[in-house]
Simulated assay, not measured.
Amino acid sequence: MKAVVCKTWGTPDTLEVIELPDLTPGAGEVAIAVKAAGVNFPDFLIIQNKYQFKPELPFTPGSELSGIVYAVGEGVKHIKTGDKVIAFIGQGAFAQQVLAPANAVIPMPEGMDFDIAAAITLTYGTSHHAVVDRAQLKADETMLVLGAAGGVGLAAIEIGKAIGAKVIAAASTDEKLDICRQHGADMTINYSNTDLREAIKNATGGKGPDVIYDPVGGIYAEPAFRSIAWRGRYLVVGFANGEIPKLPLNLALLKGASLVGVFWGEFAKREPKANMAAMSEMIGWLREGKIKPHISARYALNETANALNDIAARKVTGKVVIQPER
């Protein structure tokens, strides 16, 4: 089988596609023929040794996938050969085959395609944990989403609307904002040609958003936080801008506001039952048409570097996937 391998820390162009032996599951494992693997911004950071999760070299990147089980190990009861499944693992998804712990594997819902299935765990898991669990967004509240056209941003919009809240999407181009509106955003802000604070003030009638979802960081964090409503919750999701902002903490005091950290990977590891309950709720929303991952591009295994570079350059809207059999 073929797999993408990171042999040394570096940029996506240092990755190699090599031939490896077929995989055989051990006790408690399942072997999956990968049909699609979701690509995420942390994958770009991990191969450079710039992320919280630091695998040992060499390794195959990629953490979320969908596929068909071709073998099961001893003791596995809820999954069988031939099942279509979704899996979230620490590494290994950018390959034609992968081994996954059985407790990290769930059956694919009837009628779901492989690309959608590979795109739901990390981005939607992160955004559900952020919006529902950490922020506890309510139906009568307003949420501002920064970097709203990215994978987690679009997921946050859809989850906010599934709850019944008002959602304001902020992104850097009108084209990206069009996609945000297609996924349910009530109002939009182009922060590349508009004063962000003034735009937020106008969009909220001077009250400010109750929740701010920020996967970007950088220069937009402070003006957004200065605009937050009384008792607002500012979700620290990530730093796609590349710059970790330094916020004056007196702003939290003056607004009675909270800075709330969001680390879905650690949440999923520490609170697996809560994470599975969240996944079940989202699969229900998916069946009802309340959420639908936006797949903007598909890449072959030997195009993995292109996929990662496009994500890093913020050329991507929604999700992109690797299709190892192409």
Rank of each mutant, 00 (worst) to 15 (best):
A313I: 06
A274H: 12
I244D: 11
N103T: 12
R134S: 07
R134P: 03
A221M: 08
I189N: 02
H128W: 15
I89M: 10
G256L: 07
I68C: 07
G208Y: 14
G26M: 00
A307Q: 02
T24W: 00
A274R: 14
L65H: 01
D174K: 13
M1L: 11
L57H: 07
I32H: 09
A100K: 06
K292W: 00
V321S: 07
A87Y: 05
M187T: 13
G62K: 03
L137E: 10
T142A: 13
S192W: 07
D133C: 02
L154A: 03
I86K: 09
C6S: 07
N103K: 14
A149T: 01
R134A: 06
N40Q: 05
Q97H: 15
G265A: 09
D210W: 11
L286N: 11
E222P: 10
K246E: 14
K255W: 12
T194S: 11
E141N: 11
V69Y: 12
F41L: 10
E19S: 09
G265L: 04
D195F: 01
I116V: 15
C6E: 06
R314Q: 08
D133A: 04
A185C: 04
E19L: 01
V152H: 04
G206L: 03
E288R: 10
K2H: 12
D186R: 09
D214W: 14
P107N: 11
V237L: 14
I163C: 02
K50D: 02
E288T: 03
P107T: 12
V260P: 01
V98L: 07
D186L: 12
S63T: 10
R197F: 00
H294P: 01
G125C: 05
P293I: 00
R287V: 05
F225Q: 15
D140G: 07
K7M: 13
A199C: 01
E243V: 15
N250Q: 11
E303S: 10
G238V: 13
A224K: 11
G28P: 03
G289I: 04
D13Y: 03
L23P: 05
N202Y: 00
E16G: 08
F225Y: 12
N302G: 05
L247I: 15
R270M: 14
I244S: 03
E222D: 15
H294W: 02
G92W: 02
R326A: 13
K77I: 11
I159S: 10
G62C: 02
A307R: 09
M279D: 06
A130Y: 05
F94C: 11
K7W: 11
A130W: 04
F267L: 05
G67F: 04
D310T: 03
A3S: 06
E266H: 13
R226L: 14
V320L: 09
G38I: 00
A36W: 02
S127A: 15
E175N: 13
P25F: 03
A297G: 08
R134F: 08
A162H: 09
A170Q: 07
L249D: 07
G82K: 07
E281A: 14
P61M: 01
G289Q: 08
K292T: 00
E19G: 00
F263Q: 15
G111E: 14
P215N: 05
F41N: 02
H78W: 05
S258V: 09
A171F: 01
I212A: 11
I46E: 09
M108D: 12
A148F: 04
Y220C: 12
W230S: 06
G160D: 06
E271A: 13
A139M: 08
A156R: 09
I32C: 08
P293H: 01
E281V: 07
T121E: 11
S63N: 09
R233E: 14
